[in-house]
């Protein structure tokens, strides 16, 4: 496996970034609004009041507009694994492909089937079956997210598999280890509950717009009351699962944790930086102070990462250069062992080809000693294992700040709703509209933390991104990048236009 054209790798990265972040414009609303539609329709079926039916159909219309483009962009993402990341697909397709296939033939089929009933079955099916269909769309959407997040979690924490030296592929050994890995469970609960917050804020933003315009006042108040309860509880659950995700990161991806916390030098009882600006131009091992200024909470990071006041949290430089006092091996040693593994694997293949069983057996034994470091063998220097720190650090902190702010915002909306003072609190309503966009950005930046923080690995500690791409010229990807960019821009403008038009029409004729 020779090294690939870095220009191609970066264009493939750019295309995946564009497609994934565009796809994620639609997913959080699908995950959150689907459950809110199920809540609204359940209330309609229980009360039999037409106003709840009208309200449900209105939010379902907006859900449908959003859903259509979300599906289309998700399909493009899956194809990119084949077109742009064929080395990746070759090496780990047996494992990575399984949850993606389950998502398609199981979860998405549930969504798609019941989506049709939900939209076109109001007059054709019984109330009970229609309600069941709406719940199945919500459950199916979230099950879709589960399988995709299981696949992503395996990239962050590869478990349940074994490397086959004969084919140079990773093969699945235990699917339950993959599905129930601590990273997968934390990621699924954190990602979906944060999407419930975004979905709730979407309902609050549109309803706030109506209250500011003094239209559909009763419907807007009802919607805000339900959405603020769901948003508040989901926001609190998101904070809880976010904390658990960081704790899991400490053992599975310590470099990512160090990057998003801006921790260069590890220590026992490490402080956590609540507010801080990184020193511009800071490089690993350059001796500069990591922060231009900072406000820290004593021992906060030790408590977060180890659940102990005096626990050791490794910093970026401990992981790169090693820390003998804490038993950490530096990256230079791992790179050396990785290079030996590459040589021994090549020797094993050559011996097999020549029919020399004795030499093959000896090479395989040598390979097995260092096989866990195979991915490191493709690194050229220890500092290469450090992800882009600034983008990871700032994305993480923005996400935490906005997540905390949204919890308080939900509380204020709930309080105003309970005391029937929503319509007169115009500042809160304006905040409700604006905060939707803040939360959207926080949701996108959560993925920046997850994916940029994993760099330079496609699969943590096993396969570097630079070895995962397809060996073609970058011109191929540049062309489709431009095509997707134009297509996405046109689709987004069309979607926003249709969405705004439908919101302006409102619930009467929806």
């Amino acid at each position: 496996m020779g090294e690939l054209d870095l220009g191609m790798v970066n264009w493939a990265r750019a295309q995946f970034t564009l497609t994934a972040m565009y796809h994620w414009l639609f997913v959080p609303i699908t995950l959150g609004l689907s459950f809110l539609c199920a809540f609204f329709e359940t209330i309609y079926v229980r009360t039999g009041k037409e106003e709840w039916k009208r309200l449900t159909k209105f939010w379902m219309t907006l859900f449908g507009i959003n859903f259509a483009i979300g599906v289309a962009t998700g399909i493009i993402l899956e194809f990119e694994f084949g077109t742009n990341w064929s080395n990746y697909s070759w090496m780990v397709g047996d494992i990575f492909g399984a949850p993606l296939a389950i998502e398609g033939i199981f979860a998405f089929f549930i969504e798609a089937t019941f989506f049709a009933v939900m939209f076109f079955g109001w007059e054709r099916t019984s109330k009970g079956f229609h309600l069941f269909s709406t719940w199945m769309v919500a459950i199916g959407s979230n099950l879709s997210a589960l399988w995709i997040l299981v696949a992503n979690s395996w990239m962050q924490y590869p478990v349940g598999m074994v490397f086959n030296p004969d084919t140079a592929r990773f093969e699945m050994q235990n699917i339950w280890e993959v599905i129930l890995s601590p990273v997968a469970v934390a990621k699924f609960t954190h990602t979906t509950s944060s999407s419930f917050v975004v979905g709730s804020l979407f309902v609050i933003a549109v309803s706030s717009y109506y209250l500011l315009k003094k239209r559909h006042i009763d419907m807007a108040k009802k919607s805000i009351l339900v959405a603020s309860v769901f948003g508040l509880l989901s926001g609190l659950f998101t904070a809880f699962t976010g904390d658990e995700s960081a704790f899991v990161n400490a053992s599975t991806q310590p470099m990512k944790l160090a990057a998003y916390e801006g921790l260069y030098k590890g220590s026992r009882g490490a402080d956590i930086v609540a507010f801080g600006m990184l020193t511009p131009g800071k490089r690993t091992g350059d001796g500069q102070e990591p922060f231009a200024f900072e406000i820290s909470i004593p021992r906060g990071l030790a408590l977060l990462a180890t659940r102990e006041w005096n626990g050791f949290v490794p910093g970026i430089e401990d992981l790169v250069y090693g820390n003998s006092a804490e038993g950490l091996v530096g990256a230079a040693d791992m790179i050396e062992r990785g290079k030996k593994a590459i040589v021994d694997l090549a020797a094993y293949k050559a011996a097999r080809k020549a029919g020399d069983d004795a030499a093959g057996k000896a090479a395989l034994e040598r390979f097995n000693v260092n096989k866990d470091y195979l991915g490191y063998g493709y690194m050229t220097r220890p500092e290469e294992i450090v992800p882009p720190v600034a983008s990871t650090y700032y994305s993480f902190h923005y996400m935490v700040y906005v997540g905390t702010f949204i919890i308080f915002l939900m509380l204020f909306f709930l309080k105003a709703g309970l005391s029937d003072r929503l319509a007169e609190n115009r500042l809160l309503l304006r905040l409700g509209v604006a905060s939707f966009f803040l939360a959207y950005l926080a949701s996108e930046l959560g993925w920046v933390v997850a994916e940029v923080g994993r760099q330079p690995w496609a699969i943590q500690d096993m396969l570097p991104v630079k070895m995962a791409a397809t060996n073609i010229g970058s011109g191929h990807v540049q062309g489709t990048f431009l095509l997707f960019f134009i297509l996405f821009a046109v689709l987004l403008l069309a979607e926003i236009k249709i969405m705004i038009k439908q919101i302006k029409i409102g619930p009467e004729v929806a």
């Binding site: 459950f35 601590p182 469970v185 609960t189 509950s193 009351l225 339900v226 309860v229 709703g417 309970l418």
Partner: peptide
């Protein structure tokens, strides 16, 4: 923790619905 997170996730949806209905009744908005 796996069980806590997964049961918590289901409880989040059930409790959200029940709390929303209770508050709609309380505020005479149902």
């Amino acid at each position: 923790m796996t069980a806590v997170l997964l049961i918590g996730w289901i409880a989040l949806i059930v409790v959200s619905y029940k709390a929303a209905v209770a508050l709609l009744i309380k505020t005479n908005n149902l």
